[in-house]
């Protein structure tokens, strides 16, 4: 089939890197999630939710961050439920970077490439020149502290919460309290990989912009998925 549609450069770039699919790994959802979904269906939870997500789930997220890291985030104003960590990562990159600005990644390089390409941004070669520093909880604490010591005073930190038990979080450091955006996955660890639920928790200065971008991208996260994730988190 001939293509009359002219593709933008970013699309051509991503296509030449292949057509990646998410691995098919998930099985049946946990019983508690299934029951919560059935109840949500009975209540008619089939419409849009509030664009940042259902409040009880946002509250669970902030409780989780507080319990594990001692970090405080306002669930009403500064927390957003996303379609998996993929959307959280994408929204953070699009909103926190302008075209041409750079991101230094301590982890998750492969996952970040597409989001940077769509934004017209690139990886930084050194943390000093980066507008955004990207860290992950799976990184060694010492490595994270070392990178934090190299970034500029105006750089933002994106901290991706992975399936680890580490307890270091950049926002524990006073200098990074108001410039660290936390993102994470609420689904994979819960056996809900195919339900696509993640989150963004941000300082006040960047929260509204992140929420607006998420709304412009997908309006809200799948209603039933949010109730399922909430049930799993509440059971823990």
């Amino acid at each position: 089939m001939d293509l009359a549609v002219p593709l933008a450069k970013r699309a051509r770039t991503l296509v030449t890197r292949g057509y990646p699919d998410t691995p098919n790994t998930s099985d049946r959802a946990p019983e508690v999630a299934v029951m919560a979904t059935l109840k949500a269906l009975a209540r008619g939870e089939t419409h849009y939710t509030d664009r940042p997500g259902i409040l009880p789930l946002r509250e669970q997220v902030t409780r989780l961050l507080n319990k594990r890291f001692g970090v405080t985030v306002d669930p009403k104003a500064n927390t957003v439920i996303t379609c998996g960590v993929t959307e959280a990562r994408f929204v953070a990159v699009q909103e926190l970077l302008a075209p041409g600005e750079t991101l230094y990644a301590g982890a998750e390089l492969e996952q970040l490439f597409g989001a940077l390409t769509v934004r017209g941004s690139e990886f930084a070669e050194t943390p000093e020149e980066a507008r955004v520093l990207y860290l992950s909880s799976r990184m060694d604490e010492g490595d994270q502290r070392r990178l934090l010591g190299h970034i500029s005073d105006t750089a933002t930190v994106v901290f991706e919460l992975n399936q680890t038990t580490n307890t270091f979080h950049p926002a524990q450091l006073e200098a990074f309290q108001n410039r660290t955006v936390t993102i994470g996955d609420l689904a994979t660890e819960s056996g809900l990989e195919s339900w696509r639920v993640g989150f963004l928790a941000a300082p006040p200065a960047s929260a509204a912009g992140l929420r607006d971008f998420k709304q412009a991208l997908t309006i809200c996260t799948t209603n039933l998925s949010q109730w399922a994730a909430l049930a799993v988190l509440e059971e823990r």
Partner: peptide
């Protein structure tokens, strides 16, 4: 290819 990076697959 772009969707891989925006939200991934739609909820099954």
């Amino acid at each position: 290819a772009i969707k891989t990076h925006t939200t991934g697959p739609v909820a099954t």
